[in-house]
């Protein structure tokens, strides 16, 4: 947990700035994520959570700052390099490959850990065949892991909303990440689905994957996260264990407005 003696640093950013024209979406943001924890990111709408997510996964190039993962410098790296070094993500508004089957979606996730090229594809040499079989086996395993193996052959867009969320997680896990970044995975889910999702996240963490989580469901966050950072207007205003963050006056102010006194 958060107060473990031997915490190992996994991801560290500092001084991150990201501007869109005149808007400063991220202003001097710093945070560090330890190996094995579930790290939550909350904040009012427009606080810059998703922007930070996009910076951390290489979709946005930050203007300034430092970004290291496992000691590797990932500042202004391309998304594929970021994924290759072990950070995978899901999207706030689900972005599956809708007209591919669930299985194919996860198989695409294996792309970064496999290497068959055109020559292998055309000649189907033993190496390629073995690799292809391994991709398929691992993908089925992951569908099983998130509990939607029975939908393997269905088109992604025909899955139920909750299953699409799970499929996105399976696809992200297929890249063998050490850090899994989930952007509002519980959005639009009912109570039971949220509970199932919570269990899935705990299982993923137990299997050694660190989780970075954006979520609006404060109850879920308080029960799940080891540490939470709060963003407001592109600035980190608080960070710490849930109980402390919850009672932080700046956090309360950001969410409810300043208390007149």
């Amino acid at each position: 947990m958060a107060n473990q003696a031997n915490t190992e640093l996994l991801l560290e950013i500092s001084g991150i700035h990201k501007r869109f024209g005149g808007l400063c979406a991220l202003n001097d943001v710093a945070l560090s994520i330890n190996k094995g924890e579930i790290y939550g990111l909350i904040g009012p709408n427009g606080a810059g959570k998703t922007t930070l997510f996009n910076v951390l996964t290489g979709l946005y190039q930050p203007d300034e700052g430092k970004f290291t993962f496992k000691g590797i410098d990932l500042f202004r790296q391309k998304p594929n390099v970021v994924v290759d070094s072990g950070i995978a993500r899901t999207f706030q508004n689900i972005r599956l490959f809708h007209n591919m089957t669930a299985l194919e979606n996860v198989m695409v996730g294996r792309h970064v850990r496999t290497k068959a090229g055109v020559i292998g594809a055309v000649f189907r040499n033993p190496g390629t065949r073995v690799e292809e079989a391994a991709i398929k086996a691992r993908s089925l395993e992951l569908l099983d892991y998130v509990g939607i193996r029975k939908h393997a052959e269905e088109h992604a867009k025909n899955l139920s909303y909750g299953d699409q969320r799970r499929l996105e997680i399976a696809r992200a896990l297929a890249t063998d990440p050490q850090l899994l970044a989930l952007d509002e995975p519980a959005a639009g889910m009912n109570g039971k689905e949220t509970d199932d999702l919570k269990r899935l996240m705990e299982k993923i963490r137990a299997d050694g994957v660190t989780i970075l989580l954006i979520e609006h469901d404060v109850k879920l966050m308080m029960g799940l996260c080891d540490r939470i950072a709060v963003l407001d207007y592109g600035k980190k205003i608080a960070e710490g264990v849930p109980e402390v963050v919850k009672n932080d006056p700046r956090v309360i102010e950001a969410y409810l407005g300043a208390t007149p006194d």
């Binding site: 391309k78 998304p79 999207f91 695409v108 792309h111 970064v112 890249t175």
Partner: peptide
Amino acid sequence: EDEIAAQAMGINT
């Protein structure tokens, strides 16, 4: 299908 998602899956687009 989705270039952004493909990138986020580690494909060197």
